[in-house]
Write a protein that binds this DNA or RNA. Structure first.
Lengths: 157, 157
DNA sequence: GAAAAATACTTGACGTGTCAACTATACTCA
DNA sequence: TGAGTATAGTTGACACGTCAAGTATTTTTC
């Protein structure tokens, strides 16, 4: 009996370990979800990372220091600089240096940024619904539980 | 009641939809798994993509056309060129143009490539075991089932 | 048998993640 | 107060992934 994934990638031998099968399955599935949403973002001139920055800023409701943004994304610090550079150039955010602590740079979402988020909201919601529409509520909840459990190990590090 | 993920990313409002929660959970978890194995690969001078190319070549046991490799990875075609360039420069693969169809480039893993794979095998196995060691066999199997189910929608496209 | 279409890549431009190293500003404490 | 350290961010180099466009070689098709 060959598994579905084994078949997809033309793997000859069955998986040695459930752990390996889970890992590879993960990569495949994530790539699938990722590429679908990336396409949507791109059609609005954004990347997934840029969208995330904007969403964080809108969620907060006020300017945030760059590193705070980096912290809320899963991201390395240096990447955030270029990300904000491009968002600023596109007019979706503004940078302001903090007067009290001149090391800090506050990033603020602009009206244009908010408008763009508004545009994307509906189609993104539809896409998410579509990507999981074939799964039962119960399976979805179970999936979320298992994902959190996988990461549970990360917490004790 | 706030979910674990909601807490991790300091999200204020609870998730509107299970679908959104699943999506974000996915990204987070994948990033966690990815970064752990990337670190291992890097310590052997490889990236995850490079490792995948080598593993595919070893699995096949004979040279493969570039596009066949790209096809077995989840990858866009253009990326494969540079990937193989770097592997070739490092001495882990060789390119040979096919005599029968001169458009085709065969890629072959070298002895050095095989040796490197051998070196990585054990630590990678250990890492995978460790990353999932806190999960029961049953939960692992359930996770794999759900991952495959998520991708089931991809097949009817 | 020549023009058109398909195939197997390759190239270049751009966004992003990663690492290491650097600047500027604030803090600490001796 | 002044040296050392921590913090906030930036820069540069490199590896990808992605898109659009280009080259070289078959294959098709009329």
């Amino acid at each position: 009996m060959t598994s579905k994934l084994q078949n997809e990638i033309k793997k000859r031998k069955p998986f040695d370990r459930l752990e390996e099968e889970a890992t590879l399955n993960f990569l495949r599935t994530e790539d699938y979800l990722q590429s679908r949403s990336a396409k949507l973002f791109r059609s609005h001139g954004l990347t997934a990372s840029q969208y995330n920055v904007l969403r964080i800023l809108r969620g907060e409701g006020q300017p945030l220091p760059s590193l705070e943004i980096a912290g809320r994304m899963i991201q390395q610090v240096p990447a955030i600089t270029g990300l904000i550079d491009r968002l600023e150039r596109a007019g979706y955010v503004e940078r302001h240096r903090c007067e009290k602590d001149r090391r800090v740079v506050y990033v603020k979402i602009t009206a244009a940024g908010l408008a763009l988020l508004g545009e994307i909201e509906e189609p993104l919601k539809e896409l998410q619904m579509r990507m999981f529409s074939h799964m039962s509520r119960q399976d979805l909840r179970e999936l979320i539980r298992l994902l959190e459990q996988v990461r549970a190990a990360a917490d004790d590090e």
